[in-house]
């Protein structure tokens, strides 16, 4: 039976970005909805195979290093390689980064270059403001191509930061292909697992606002430094 209360339906539709109340043509979706689905799917695929522009990296003051997954096909097949750094990347980090910083910022495309393109430019300056207000010092930020979350441990063993923030593109969905996550860890090193980390996810203009996420991450880092821990043990 069709849904008759048009106002109520509009309310429900406004409450969620999910595809509800889209109607049908016979037993199939309408042409408009089908095209929208295919468009969103294509955008998701584009995000996975896209790359972050060198212009943006320059603007954000990030230099680029490779992860252990040197090309995109290998990256998708071998998640483990995305958590490692090859020797030439390690050398770059040792040469260019301040060792043992209070806060190490790392950005990675992960599964959505579009996420970084759309959100990093708003989040990073708000995060740096927040750190400055709290009197915290950031190390040398950089970008890892084809990284996975676990690369935080690898970087921790090389640069020994007190805290690390990894901004990484999320696996794209059909609602948005531009969603970014921020992973945080206190004294990252080999053996750290998800329960040792914190995450702020769904960062994009239609979800967690990037600027406010940046400001909040700054406070979370201050709390991690004060309590000397992160993850499930941190009192929030």
């Amino acid at each position: 039976m069709p849904f008759r209360d048009e106002d109520r339906m509009q309310e429900l539709k406004q409450a969620t970005p999910a595809r509800i109340g889209t109607g049908r043509a016979g037993t199939r979706p309408t042409t408009r909805e089908l095209l929208k689905l295919r468009y969103d799917h294509a955008a998701a695929v584009d995000s996975v195979y896209g790359s972050v522009s060198t212009d943006l990296l320059a603007e954000l003051g990030l230099f680029m290093v490779d992860s252990g997954a040197v090309d995109q096909e290998l990256y998708l097949r071998r998640p483990d390689l995305g958590r490692l750094l090859p020797d030439h990347s390690i050398q770059q980090l040792i040469q260019r980064c301040i060792p043992s910083p209070q806060v190490q910022l790392v950005v990675s495309d992960g599964l959505s270059a579009g996420a970084i393109e759309h959100n990093a430019g708003d989040l990073i300056p708000a995060l740096l403001d927040s750190l400055q207000v709290q009197g915290l010092k950031a190390g040398t930020p950089f970008f890892v191509r084809n990284g996975r979350v676990g690369i935080m441990n690898t970087i921790g063993d090389i640069l020994h930061p007190e805290t690390i923030v990894l901004l990484i593109g999320e696996r794209p969905g059909l609602i948005t292909s531009h969603s970014m996550s921020a992973y945080l860890c206190y004294r990252p090193c080999a053996g750290m697992t998800d329960s040792d980390r914190m995450v702020i996810s769904n960062i994009h203009q239609g979800g967690t606002p990037p600027v406010e996420a940046g400001a909040h991450i700054g406070s979370l880092i201050a709390r991690m430094l004060k309590q000397k821990k992160s993850g499930v043990g941190l009192v929030q």
């Binding site: 708000a126 927040s130 207000v133 400001a215 909040h216």
Partner: peptide
């Protein structure tokens, strides 16, 4: 009205 107060406050403070 937007969720931006902390970022804005930090900015004004600096």
């Amino acid at each position: 009205e937007n969720d931006i107060a902390k970022a804005l406050g930090n900015c004004i403070h600096l």
